[in-house]
Computed example of a mutant assay.
Amino acid sequence: MTSSNGPAVSREEFDALFETVRTWGRWTPADRGAWNRVTPEQVRRAVSRVRSGAVVPLARPWDTRSAPDNPKPALHHMTDLGDVEAPEPSVHKDFLAADYHGKGMTHLDALCHAAYRGQLYGGRAAHEVIDAAGAHYGAVGALGPLVTTGVLLDLPAVLGTAWLEPGQAVHAEDIVAAERALGVAIGEGDAVLLRSGSPRRRAERGAWDPDAASAGLHVDAVPLLAERGIALLGGDGDNDVRPSPVDGVHSPVHALALAAIGVPLLDNLDLEALSAATAEAGRFAFLLVVAPLNVPGGTGSPVTPVAVL
């Protein structure tokens, strides 16, 4: 693994890759995409992986503080401080809101979140199915909860480092090497979670602008993940290495995963506790539960995924 985001990929090469991996027309309903791979049998296999019953939450805290990686902080304020009114009990209420598609909040991207060349997954024209009321195709409500096998690719653990440096790309050969080192294999219907260690780096070095530089997947890793038949892809960044190696495409992994293959994305996970728990257990595959909010027309949802070992 090199410390660069390369090699560079031309727009023509990227378009050819998009056509190679796309799965349009493969599933019904189409707007669940690769989520259709998670059958009841897949769920039963995932549940059978539970040994200790240890539950590990994978979400970052609700962050109301402005920072270079959180320019649109979430909102949280009290709306009722429990003033006593008959009859008892007094109650306490609060308000939550978030512009969650950024770098500061753990969230799920539905298939309508990203279009490439104006088309969503399956070839639907984005302007025809998305308006001010929301998305009428590929919305988060079409996904529902996901229960499947999660696979942690703990790259810093494999490399013997605390974290991957911002701008460091993860390639297909790095994924294969991580599988071998960790004794785990990515299977059909699995959720792949890539740990770069960015939350640990932030805690020790301070916040930086992840739009300018962040560790993540190079596009040359996507065909391998597509071949394995994954149902979900996530990471402790937003999955894309930055700067983007593709000329004119700022989030190429988003374009390939969401618009070409139909794989929803988990962005901005906190995988530090899971890294410690899987290392202690000596197992890097586990039961994963992801339950997005049921938002009609939503392009995604804040989530708190849970791993059960």
Rank of each mutant, 00 (worst) to 15 (best):
M105D: 10
V246N: 06
V43R: 15
W62Y: 10
L225K: 10
A285N: 15
K72N: 14
P61L: 08
H250P: 09
V170Q: 03
A110E: 11
P264G: 12
A74C: 14
L265A: 08
D174C: 03
S244I: 05
F286D: 01
A226I: 02
V303M: 10
L233E: 07
A142I: 02
V192G: 09
G234P: 03
L81Q: 07
G118T: 02
S251M: 08
L108F: 04
R202G: 00
H254C: 12
Y116Q: 03
T2H: 02
S196D: 00
E179H: 02
L75S: 10
P87W: 08
P71D: 12
D154E: 06
H136Y: 13
A54T: 11
A132S: 15
T149S: 15
V306C: 03
H171T: 01
G138S: 05
S198T: 13
S198H: 14
A97S: 13
R180Q: 15
R201L: 06
A34M: 15
A281C: 02
P57A: 04
F284R: 11
T2M: 04
A178M: 08
N268T: 14
V249K: 08
L120I: 05
G53R: 01
H171E: 05
Q168N: 00
E272M: 12
S90A: 15
G144I: 07
G229Q: 10
N268H: 08
A16P: 02
D94Y: 14
G262Y: 06
D220A: 03
L266F: 09
S90W: 11
F14I: 01
G123R: 04
L288I: 04
L143K: 00
G53I: 03
R124I: 10
E179L: 04
D267Q: 12
G297L: 10
A126T: 00
L265V: 01
L194S: 02
D174R: 02
L75E: 14
W24I: 03
R124S: 04
H113M: 14
V147Y: 04
A213Y: 00
L309E: 09
